[in-house]
């Protein structure tokens, strides 16, 4: 049994107050979709499979389905630099946020997760913590078949195994999506259920990077409430959209937080513009 399986088992027992069978055996007998598969890399198990929609992913501009080589190259650069920094600081949890709405944080978080998961030594858990305007499941095209999300978990109507999905066609990546809008999100994010989830996450392999897709800083206080519980923050800035004054204010708000860095989205001076022509 892998380390992840053991920790999930422990979490379930703790939450339900009774010992549970190992989920792979249970899933195998009851629900094929939730039947665990063999770990593809040996460092991360596969949870219930979410059937991704390639058209939806392509429409959402996820790099796994794109032919835009400039974009792919840019995300590779981002992946490399994120990995370097996180490894150097031994960070494992990362919040992806932005200054305002519509600046591409969910897209960046999703594409960063996909890019990071291409590394065979790395497993990724993408958590949709934008509890009011959740889009991760929609981006991956499995929103229609998703039953439970983190909202249900935080409200106590679902457990961790019920909310972790392994998207089909994508190896070494797991997703905890969210369904509808959740009220009192900041309270829930600093509540005990969230702490349990984080504890469970910390028990995962050292090679698992957890990416939290969170709402914009200037829109809600979710990020500020949740930041103390994560290792670092990655800020997404959209060219032609993010206001410089608000950006400075955001930097002030995040002064106490570890800044992993900033990503300029929709940039017309991409460094990979010239580079990808080399290939």
């Amino acid at each position: 049994m892998s380390k992840l399986q053991t920790s999930i088992q422990k979490a379930i027992e703790k939450s339900r107050g009774e010992p549970v069978q190992q989920r792979p055996q249970q899933d195998a007998s009851s629900d094929k979709a939730r039947q665990p598969e063999e770990p593809s890399s040996g460092i991360f198990r596969v949870f219930q499979t979410a059937h991704t929609d390639k058209e939806a992913m392509e429409e959402s501009c996820l790099v796994s389905e794109l032919e835009d080589r400039a974009a792919i190259a840019a995300y590779k650069v981002l992946r490399t630099r994120v990995l370097q920094r996180m490894r150097s600081h031994k960070w494992r949890t990362l919040v992806v946020t932005s200054v305002g709405a519509g600046e591409g944080k969910t897209l960046t978080a999703s594409n960063l997760a996909i890019s990071l998961a291409r590394d065979v030594n790395q497993s990724i858990l993408l958590v949709d913590l934008d509890l009011k305007r959740s889009k991760v499941a929609t981006y991956f095209g499995f929103d229609s078949e998703m039953k439970n999300g983190i909202g249900e978990y935080l409200n106590g109507t679902a457990e961790i195994p019920d909310i972790v999905y392994s998207p089909s066609g994508l190896k070494r990546i797991s997703i905890i999506p969210n369904g509808g809008a959740v009220d009192h999100a900041s309270d829930l994010l600093s509540g005990p259920r969230m702490k349990e989830l984080l504890a469970w996450i910390r028990q995962q392999s050292d090679r698992t990077i957890v990416i939290f897709d969170m709402p914009p800083i200037m829109v809600d206080d979710d990020v500020l409430a949740f930041c103390p519980q994560v290792d670092a923050v990655l800020l997404v800035v959209a060219q032609g959209q993010t206001d410089r004054v608000l950006l400075q204010k955001t930097m002030g708000l995040l002064a106490e937080t570890n800044m992993l860095g900033v990503v300029v989205n929709r940039c017309d001076e991409s460094t990979s513009d010239n580079a990808y022509g080399y290939y």
């Binding site: 429409e59 835009d68 840019a74 995300y75 860095g261 991409s270 460094t271």
Partner: peptide
């Protein structure tokens, strides 16, 4: 702060 990466406008089909 130097950006980690600059992502171009992504084109889909």
């Amino acid at each position: 702060m130097v950006p980690l990466a600059t992502i171009p406008v992504i084109e889909n089909s």
